[in-house]
């Protein structure tokens, strides 16, 4: 009974994060030049790496979204997702500390796109908590390899 609850909770988290990531990635894939501007505005990457990052990151988000929704390679997806979210959180915090009033590029690239703020950090921390939850649920159990 108890484990059923956790299973449903995990499924819910996977679907929410999965669809959120796919939704976030689509706009960036359609307009990579706009996402490149967002990446550049963080001012952490050398100019030469900005475009390739803007091309590949949204596809990584799609890949992670799809694996989470389909429930395949969950430990890997949750692991990569956690790293990605930690990178996002660090970037947002560093932008806030440096006083950059820039678009976050988190979920939307629209004109009214949200700026970097502590609210964005809190949202990402929630996602991180969800992805760590999935990750630890899919770590190997001691019994599974006892021969």
């Amino acid at each position: 009974m108890k484990s059923k609850f956790w299973d449903w909770l995990e499924l819910f988290i996977r679907l929410v994060i999965g669809f959120l990531f796919i939704y976030a990635a689509v706009g960036k894939i359609i307009h990579p030049e706009k996402f490149a501007v967002v990446v550049y505005n963080y001012r952490v990457l050398p100019v030469e790496l900005v475009n390739i990052t803007a091309i590949l990151v949204p596809w990584l988000e799609i890949a992670l979204g799809v694996t989470l929704i389909l429930g395949i390679w969950l430990e890997t997806a949750a692991f990569l997702l956690s790293i990605l979210i930690i990178v996002f959180i660090s970037l947002i915090i560093s932008a806030i500390i440096r006083g950059l009033n820039i678009e976050c590029g988190c979920f939307t690239l629209s004109k009214t796109g949200s700026l970097v703020s502590w609210k964005r950090v809190a949202e990402d921390l929630l996602i991180l908590a969800g992805s760590l939850f999935i990750f630890f649920r899919h770590l190997p159990q001691e019994q599974s390899t006892t021969e």
């Binding site: 490149a36 550049y40 030469e48 475009n51 390739i52 091309i55």
Partner: peptide, 15 residues
């Protein structure tokens, strides 16, 4: 890379 190459909105790999 393939999508970016095919897409009319694709961007150069290096700006």
């Amino acid at each position: 890379l393939i999508f970016n190459w095919l897409s009319p909105n694709g961007i150069p790999l290096v700006a």
